[in-house]
Design a binder for these strands. Structure first.
Lengths: 82, 82
DNA sequence: GTGTGACTTGAAGTCCGTC
DNA sequence: AGACGGACTTCAAGTCACA
């Protein structure tokens, strides 16, 4: 997602998207993976991980599943703090 | 989602999509809501709820948030069993 | 009140590059 | 190694008609 599309989502939704991004980043770094490596393992594009971690993506369920799998956590764990 | 696109997702992904759908249906019925009413409250289309509950939708995060909100549960709770 | 196929459109997600 | 942009393709999202 390019530049600023913040108007598309409510403040509440943006907040959760940001939290999800930070959570992914935390878990990725805890696994000592680069964005590139995580992207490769989860079969998503390198630049997409970047936008996710910055809270700019409205991620779909299948992508969330793949990320959870690679990061070695359950989906529930991924949403723990939201 | 039109016709049969089941080939698009892995068995694992389809399984979770189905579980999510059942979970939504359970929570909706526990709240004594019709699909129509849930749709109205969550600001999504009636027929979309139908496809979600049958596990045919690769739901995005924002839709999950709206459903969780209306159903009165956290996102983590929504993913409890997966 | 719900399931489903057909359809449109905006966003998800990819791929190239530069900084 | 990561942020970010532009252009592109694929699909989620939303609507309708009918069963």
């Amino acid at each position: 997602m390019p530049t600023n599309n913040s108007h598309r989502y409510s403040a509440h939704e943006q907040e959760i998207m940001k939290k999800m991004g930070l959570r992914v980043r935390q878990l990725r770094e805890a696994s000592s993976l680069s964005q590139e490596k995580l992207a490769e393992l989860a079969h998503v594009h390198r630049t997409y991980i970047s936008t996710i971690e910055r809270g700019q993506q409205n991620i779909s369920l299948t992508i969330l599943i793949r990320l959870a799998d690679v990061l070695g956590v359950s989906l529930a764990t991924l949403f723990e703090d939201t």
